[in-house]
């Protein structure tokens, strides 16, 4: 039986890794991966809470919803990245800054 705090620490760790990737990597695809990691850290949290207090039985079902929606979101995000590439001929996030004020 793994203690509950391990789940928490694990998911916090995972979230921080995802955040670091999303904030530091220049490639849009890798940043998207970081976002996915953050999402799954939240999923781990949901399952862990559900496991600890089974009266909230919906936690696992909710995480499955999150996974499905994340898949859909990835589709949209990849499509956006393709359009980005077609427009800028690059997926470097540092170059995608034309909205900023001069």
């Amino acid at each position: 039986m793994i203690p509950f705090s391990y789940y928490m620490l694990g998911s916090a760790f995972l979230f921080c890794i995802g955040l670091a990737i999303a904030l530091t990597k220049r490639s849009a695809i890798v940043a998207l991966m970081g976002v996915e990691l953050m999402l799954n850290a939240a999923n781990v949290n949901l399952v862990a809470f559900s496991h600890r207090d089974p009266s909230f039985g919906e936690g696992t079902a909710f995480s499955i919803f999150v996974i499905v929606i994340a898949a859909a979101e990835v589709c949209v995000a990849l499509a956006l990245i393709i359009r980005l590439f077609q427009h800028f001929r690059s997926v470097d996030l540092h170059k995608v800054n034309t909205l900023k004020e001069e």
Binding site: L19, A22, L23, T24, A31, L93, H94, V96, N97, K100, E101
Partner: peptide, 17 residues
Amino acid sequence: FRKPQGERTQSMIAWSI
């Protein structure tokens, strides 16, 4: 509020967080 956020998307996100 806007100026310190810099020009890059990722720095803006960092600031928001």
